[in-house]
Design a protein around this nucleic acid. Sequence first.
DNA 1: AAGTGGTCTAGACCACAGA
DNA 2: CTGTGGTCTAGACCACTTA
Lengths: 243, 243
Amino acid sequence: MKIRAPKYEQIAEEIRKRIRDGIYQPKTAIPDQNTLAKEFGVSRMTIKKSLDGLSMAGLIYTRRGDGTYVLGDIPLKIDTNSPAQKHTGLTAELGSRLSSQVIQFTTIMPTEELMEHLKINHDEPVLNIIRLRLVNKEPYVLEHTYMPKKLMPNLNNRVLKHSIYNYLEKDLNLKLGGAYRKIHADFSNNLDIRYLGSQPNDPILEVEQVAWLQNGIPFEYSFSRNKYDTRSYTVLDINPANA
Amino acid sequence: MKIRAPKYEQIAEEIRKRIRDGIYQPKTAIPDQNTLAKEFGVSRMTIKKSLDGLSMAGLIYTRRGDGTYVLGDIPLKIDTNSPAQKHTGLTAELGSRLSSQVIQFTTIMPTEELMEHLKINHDEPVLNIIRLRLVNKEPYVLEHTYMPKKLMPNLNNRVLKHSIYNYLEKDLNLKLGGAYRKIHADFSNNLDIRYLGSQPNDPILEVEQVAWLQNGIPFEYSFSRNKYDTRSYTVLDINPANA
DNA sequence: AAGTGGTCTAGACCACAGA
DNA sequence: CTGTGGTCTAGACCACTTA
């Protein structure tokens, strides 16, 4: 973790705690910004920045001229499905219950589609990886991944059995920038039937993804295919209109 | 529109324009914050706030100690599918090409599930609406919607043929707060086959949604079902780690 | 060492909601 | 009218990257 977080984060964390502990109750106002500024011994701008973060996280909402209110439980059930808007990969999500089976690991030359999605030239080789991810030894998702070879100098089988994202952030010290995902429904194909154990007519939930680093360089184009009854994709969308 | 936007928004808009016009080129640094502050005649804090917004929107990224860079085109194709992270409803998305056919419009008492999702008591009636939305006269999506009756005093057939979201924001002056969505794949059911024209074995893309107002009150629980080949759900996810 | 962005202050004024 | 949150300033110091 960090040696020292900024004040506004520390304060946000304390307020988060007070909401969790019920000191600040849902639907009720929390102290005004001036009062909080005095309590924490900081300027009001700093309090404002803390509250902005909590507001974006959907814990509170503010009404100009009125006050700041705790926004009771958001009506959602976080279940075993994937949390929204995280691209830390499956490993962080499911931890040790996860294992991987590498089905294919080859180097290819890019198709037109890959050149476009990964923003590379026709002569730059691409890694083509197919992995079956298992949760508690049960087939969970079949991942087809394409990555520019030049970005992943030492990617090997050992890494593939664990987390590519950890390898990027820890070993290569690259920062994730974002991801664009498209979610479809589809029929099962032969690989799905073989590895996921789906029936020929079973629907498949497919997540197509382009992910890029903080400097805008795309590093991954992938398809994740799940049996219709094993996974949903969830999105939590807080309206930024309260800025 | 607004009479007068805050300075930081005006400046952000100007910078956005310069990126669009190629005055600030992808992959290159834009002027530093002090220079921009002088140019626009504002304090650096205000410039910072402009850049924060652009950063969150994924147009630029900043590196402490280094500079601020334009983040070239994000590798994504916005096609006819739904834009990400908008809950303004289909009307804003597709405009006049959209029409609606109200298949069912009744008042029911809530099930356990509805009570939980809409946070209401067992004696509070719920509107149950089934609408077929058509784009260019073609069946597009079948929407099952549940809303607490008390929140929608004058909802009528005329509104249902247009936009419930407009009704909320314009007529009732309520502000949307957020939405939680779960995307599944499923088999076609009888209603899908009848209204969407899908085949019995066709996969369906279903978006299950709970939406709430800015004060945290849930106002809608709904299912939107699309034929697998007519729609994808897209998500654009910018990593907030560059704060 | 120089220059960048990130944080923070102690005020000020404005816009808005509610009594 | 009072009190609230939203914006903005003119500086200061710190953390970091690059040379």
